[in-house]
Write a protein that binds this DNA or RNA. Sequence first.
DNA 1: TTGTGTTTTATTGCCTCC
DNA 2: GGAGGCAATAAAACACAA
Length: 208
Amino acid sequence: MTKPTTITHLDEKMLLSSLLTSELYSQMPQGENKVRRRRKKAKGDAASSESKKRRLSDEQVKFLEMNFGKERKLESGRKVHLATELGLDPKQVAVWFQNRRARWKNKQMEEEYQRLKSMHDSVVLEKCHLENEVLRLKGRLSEAEEKIRNLSGGPNGAAAVASPSSPPSTVTHQPLYQELGMDGEADLMYINEYNYNNYLMDLSWYGM
DNA sequence: TTGTGTTTTATTGCCTCC
DNA sequence: GGAGGCAATAAAACACAA
């Protein structure tokens, strides 16, 4: 009689992960990748109650935390001293410090990421504002040029304005919204806000 | 109670340094 | 070559919603 096995989400994840690492990665030619092969866990020992995983007591953790605060690395003498003090195996102390360093490093990286992200966000926002300002000023420049053309006498006056002192490239400075037939600065503000929002959405999409 | 996600403890394999 | 560090991961322990 074979009982149908139900595969939980967790099992599925583990299975997938072990398949990926053991099968896929171990097939990669050695030397071309730095991905280590999936190890095999010695399951027999875990069954014995003696080697079962034990959580450290609050006092033990507190003491270890205190020591970690003083010095994150653990030289041999200190390890043995802490172990006897806490009634633990020196190896357990070493493992605890190793794991604690890993957690500390993760936290540092997370904080650094948040710091950089907020810096980056404010730079992007600033860029949007500056782009808006550039477009606004270009609009005003076009208006001023138009007025000058009108003042210097009708439709032919434009030729007079386009003298050597005013470069012909001015035409290419026409604001984008005029080219697109849009309604001035309000639309431009909208475009920039739109781009910025899309940008933020992209960041969140990539989990940033 | 149970399924699921998270945290903690422990192991393995590789790398570096002395 | 071995001691110690680190990254990756396993697995137990725990938290918690449903």
